[in-house]
Design a protein around this nucleic acid. Structure first.
Lengths: 344, 344
DNA sequence: GTGAAAGCGCTAACAT
DNA sequence: ATGTTAGCGCTTTCAC
């Protein structure tokens, strides 16, 4: 079926020769909507098939200055929420004939290195989730007409576009659920202290509690570092051996930390949920819906957020320029399951 | 800090002009180990910094025919095991200055489309996990000198290299653990029927059971489709309302399905684990270690497998040719936790 | 509608 | 060690 290692690759010239046309005709045959007769296109495509010709996208990118690839920089790949986001981006971009460069970066360190690298690959856009970026790098991208979108995070003073959900509002929603359930003493398992996502959720939550007359001293803050293990350990450390009495309600600033808190409380501390302590999360990842958790949480509309991001990318691609500082705020809503008592 | 949209991008010529050298000198300044004086390189790098010059990797790829990018095609992104694999690849490739194109593909459909696409981007290698590929596409890649590696799967008659773990042996290991625990009646929650991974694990498991004198009729097979939800539902359907008596032992062909089985049995069927029914998994994902599961399972050595894959990729890159049909088999081992009774 | 010609921004001989 | 030259494989005017 296949020939021996044919060292020399097949180019549009080879196809042109076989089909008896010019090299530019071959190019046109592969470009939808270019002026070429159907008859000729068919003949060229046939020749291409015979030779197993695949157009060289690298050469094409060099000249068109668009690579049909988007870079996605992930800060916390251990959080299933961001896998959901990654999956949504990959699938939707694939559908529209684009591919994605996936990078991971320590949430605490800067994404600048990764960005400089993809800059050389002429990516058509950069999506950044939970990672830092300098304003210098941002304007470098923007100057070159490469849109950069902060997904679920923002950087004050940055020109990058941002797409995020209403983290403050979500925090408030959860606070209200706890208040209605008559909780008096609270704990918050916080995520990355540098990230606006965690900050905003904590702020909205606390704000609403204070409005309801809860004393600040009745709200304990615990560092969960955005991951299951740390959240689990932190809760354990805070309440093991009666170090402190268990609070009435715990807010896990994301679902995966809420799950860590649940496991610590139920399996290590031997308390019941929601009878002894109530727990609320944020994100609504599928894992939280499973039988051992049935987590009451705040849902982020991933699809809407991803679509909105794609829209910004598309506009940039069509107009050939970046519209700086677009800002989309998606609504959140409370999903009742079983970790918060529901007032009758 | 940043100038207005400067439409015209900066190239090596601009840097050359500013530094007062030839354009090729600029190229050399950015290529480690090329003959250029330290003094001149410094001067060029300085000029480059002033202009925020980033070498155009696209142009470089066009000429060197190597893009420093690897494509990873994921069949089942819902299985956390493959996220672990993806993460390992991304991190290790990033370290060595390479980036990855991530693709997802329905495990049942073929990866051919995705492969044809990356072929145009001159990728330096393709890693395929749980997805089909035609032999025609395989030899197309191999002919062009692009190594393709099947990760944890193989295709009889294919020339692609494969790196996988000893799935048959792992299945046997688990069967032995069950035999020692005196199980008599078994169930297997199977994964993708087309995938060699599931097939091999089932085969090893069954084989060992038969050797121990278990009758084939004492081994029930259930379709779990490689995902949590389907496994959970299938187990429920098989045993709800006493449709059939619960078996002594269930083999979840991967951890995520074993977790689905655990939740179904404990929360829906109200049986105890391991007292009423024992459960074993395969993969050893972190989720299985958590308090609600503590799953006894077979560990796959991800790091070893990824490193082995990288080695094949590197050899191909250095020698400029693909050594067809390399085959690495990684050992598995049993990790005892709490879902199988341990004989004293 | 079609072909010829001119590059895209870089690397790799080839001289010097 | 350095500059000059010739492309990598394609897209895109520009004539016809």
């Amino acid at each position: 079926m296949s020939s021996k290692q044919n060292r020399t690759r097949v180019t549009s010239h080879d196809v042109a020769a076989l089909a008896g046309v010019s090299q530019s005709a071959v190019s046109r045959a592969f470009t939808l909507g270019s002026s070429i007769s159907d008859e000729k296109r068919e003949r060229i495509l046939e020749a291409a098939r015979k030779l197993s010709y695949v157009p060289n996208s690298i050469a094409s990118s060099l000249i068109t200055r668009r690579s049909k690839t988007i870079a996605i920089i992930l800060g916390n790949i251990d959080n299933p929420f961001y896998i959901l986001v990654l999956k949504a981006f990959i699938e939707k971009l694939q559908e529209s004939g684009r591919q994605v460069f996936t990078f991971t970066v320590d949430p605490k360190s800067s994404a600048d290195d990764a960005i400089m690298r993809v800059l050389g690959y002429q990516v058509d856009g950069i999506v950044l989730t939970s990672a830092q970026i300098s304003t210098r790098t941002t304007s470098l991208c923007l100057d070159r007409g490469i849109p950069i979108i902060l997904f679920n995070r923002y950087i004050p003073g940055s020109d990058a576009s941002v797409v995020r959900c209403d983290n403050v509002g979500g925090g408030r929603l959860l606070a209200e659920a706890f208040i209605k359930a008559r909780a008096k003493r609270f704990a918050i398992v916080k995520g990355d202290p540098m990230g606006t996502t965690s900050q905003d959720r904590v702020q909205g939550f606390t704000e609403r509690l204070l409005e309801a007359g809860i004393a600040r001293s009745a709200i304990q803050e615990i560092e969960g570092n955005s991951v299951y293990d740390d959240a689990c350990k932190a809760v354990l450390q805070a309440y093991a051996d009666g170090a402190a009495p268990l609070p009435d309600a715990i807010f896990g600033v994301n679902d995966i930390m809420a799950m860590g808190a649940i496991d610590a409380i139920r399996h290590r501390l031997g308390a019941r949920i929601p009878e002894d302590v109530m727990i609320g999360g944020f994100d609504d990842i599928p894992e939280g819906r499973r039988a051992p958790y049935e987590l009451t949480t705040i849902r982020q509309p991933i699809d809407e957020m991803v679509d909105e991001t794609l829209k910004i990318l598309d506009v940039a691609a069509e107009e050939g320029r970046v519209q700086a500082d677009r800002h989309h705020l998606a609504p959140t809503r409370l999903i009742w399951r079983k970790t918060i008592r529901r007032p009758t």
